[in-house]
Design a protein around this nucleic acid. Sequence first.
DNA 1: TCCGACGTTGGAGCG
DNA 2: CCGCTCCAACGTCGG
Length: 529
Amino acid sequence: MRTIYWFRMSSLRLHDHPALLAAAEGSSCLYPVFCLERRIATPYGENRRRFLLESLRDLDAGLRSLNSRLIVLDGAPEVALRAALADWSVDRLAYQLDLASAESKRSAAAVDALAEAAGVQVLARGGHTMCDLDALLRRAGGSPTTSYAPFVKHFEAEVRAAPIVARPAPSRLPPVGGEATAADDAARAVPAPADVGLPADADAAVLVRGGESAALARLDEHLQRRGGAWAAEMEKPATSPMALEPFGAGTRSTTVLSPYLAFGCLSPRLFYTRLAAEAYGRHPKHAMPPVSLHGQLLWREFFHTCAHGTPNYERMVGNPICRQVPWGDDKELLAAWAEGRTGYPWIDAAMTQLRREGWIHHLARHAVACFLTRGDLWQSWEKGAAVFEELLLDVDPALNAGNWMWLSASCFFYQYFRCYSPVAFPKKYDKDGAYVRRWLPALANFPAKYIYEPWKAPIADQKAAGCIIGKDYPKPIVAHDVASKANMAKMAEAYAAHKEGGASKAAATPTPKRAAPAPAKKTKQMKLK
DNA sequence: TCCGACGTTGGAGCG
DNA sequence: CCGCTCCAACGTCGG
């Protein structure tokens, strides 16, 4: 049996890799392959490309320690693998399932089709999630639940039926088929940064290094903090979005393991089982879902299940769980938000950190997402999700779209009258504005009193700080109190339209407790299908 | 069928 | 500084 193992963007590891183990079994030779479109300007940003290369280098090193290697093919999978199947006359193609996005499903289906056409057997296994997502969907009655608590019940039942086990990395692998010339070998090596358009000195703001080794080291580090007590007690809402050292010892913040989960450098099952054994098992008074670290992994599973079971999940139109909201379409507002020049320092600092480091704290994501959508700018969550897709290291389409729907009150969360203030919220965490000063040097010397609303500073203070608002730092592009109030009314309208549309199928319309906001008849019926 | 409890992380004002 | 209540009131779930 001659087998190609197709490593994907979400499976860049050797540990706990059932599809890889299955591919190795009974193979006389195994071609470990990654497909990379080098010449195409990749749709994602520099940080993510760098992280990818580091992950590929680490994977290659791990494979070499097993007398194998990584073969990097140039081109999209459905193109590069077609040629490889023929050139290497393989019998079997194996890969790990990734059901998180329409695109990952599409590329797998395309690869399945060409393998079938070539008479090559396909072997696909789970491993990107803790459970079989179809099994979780069945427990939900076929369509995903949009509430966490019922999901946890489904998850727990599924885990009782099929306990979570993390399997070790293979201790040996079949040899790579050996007809390649030295020139072939060089061409199939992990590319240099310049080959994927990365400047050689792009390392200045690196927050986390890519690769399975780095992932496992960071996991160890967190599990060792206070003998596992830190991980056991960790509660997400108690962490600060403005900690300057997101994972340094002594700070109350998060693990920053998300990039490794997204790229598959870290197995969620390994993370889950090691937490159980080394943190929760040793510290009985531990945190619980939804706020605990286990809870975070359950959120991931929750969104993956939703994504897998929902048509058009990454879009508003045609998405049955998403509120249909008539978002605006203002390129300048979107650009100002994306480039960190809204005039609200907390928003702009977070967007600057995101662009530089490829990561911001979950609550910072809340703040900027609320601001772009229902809070202030009234722009579509899909536009925001696309910007995150470009900038974030830890892009996971299921989580990205899910959280954008959450924050825009399009699904999962509906209390749209609860709105983040770009001024009041950051004050709770960082009264002096150290985070803003760190990321927006123009405001470095601004008085703390005005750090989150600098346009209110007397001109004398602005001069003393060396920062004139409107010249050295922008004036606010919207007035938050006015915009957020107006947008809340628009949300009420969209919700009322949704209610009307949904009620049309049931004859017995339960009269709304409160008459729907009267603004004209607005017979704009939202059609959901 | 209906009603009440609840929802990972809001804001403002008060004591 | 903390914790409490109210604000005006959403959808989902379960009894």
